[in-house]
Amino acid sequence: MSRITLLTLQVLVAVVAIAIWHFATTVPVFGRLLLPPFFFSNPFDVAERIYKWFYTGSVWRHLWITLAESTLAFVIGSLGGALVGFWFARRPIVAAVFDPYVKMMNALPRVVLAPIFALWLGLGIWSKVALGFTLVFFVVFFNVYQGVKEVSPTILANARMLGMNERQLMRNVYWPSALSWMFSSLHTSVGFAVVGAVVGEYLGSAAGLGYLIQQAEGVFDVAGVFAGMFVLSAFVIVIDVLVSMVERRLLVWRPTVGEARA
């Protein structure tokens, strides 16, 4: 399928979905609407709301806050996860001691931490960053741990035969391997950073996309809720595209699935 055809079909899906939504919420069938506008709003109201947000510029502040929280959660979570993952992988005893606690904390649904973080860190951005951190940290931690553990024994033996000492092994073998695993989970960890920020905002804050949605919900402003969801989706897609670009740059040395060799 050519790029143009694919794009056309993708756009077509959106057009059809919006058309159905519009039809069901505005055109009566046998005297009644299929979807009550009170619960489902309609495409024009939502579009108008989004337009107004951007026209008046009121949405930028919320986007900016969510972006800042996500970025901080991602950066701090990645750094922490990478360092601890690396440390555990190189010190099996430490890993063995902490193993049950790591599993326990990872099993905990992070949402329950949101009120605690709000108590500890207030309703500002840091409670959201903390929530995102707990999500990102484990993704990166497990990947880096695996990356260091799974270095091919042949490559390791080769490095040692080439004369690398422990420090050079770290730099030239363990780190690149760990980073490649970390980068391959970039989409997941960035996604989690956004989830942490938005859920945190939703559960208690004064700004951000999650706050916007939560506010609209509080007054049964369904158009506002839908508008918030659309802006959030667009936000996530833009970030995802950026991540893909970064990924292509960082993982040039990796075969793409199609060209992988035996």
């Binding site: 091919s152 042949t154 490559i155 033996a157 080769n158 030239n172 073998v173 690149p176 990796r254």
Partner: peptide, 10 residues
């Protein structure tokens, strides 16, 4: 080595 031992990231 018998199997691939080049550093794939270099």
């Amino acid at each position: 080595f018998q199997s691939d031992a080049l550093f794939p990231w270099k």
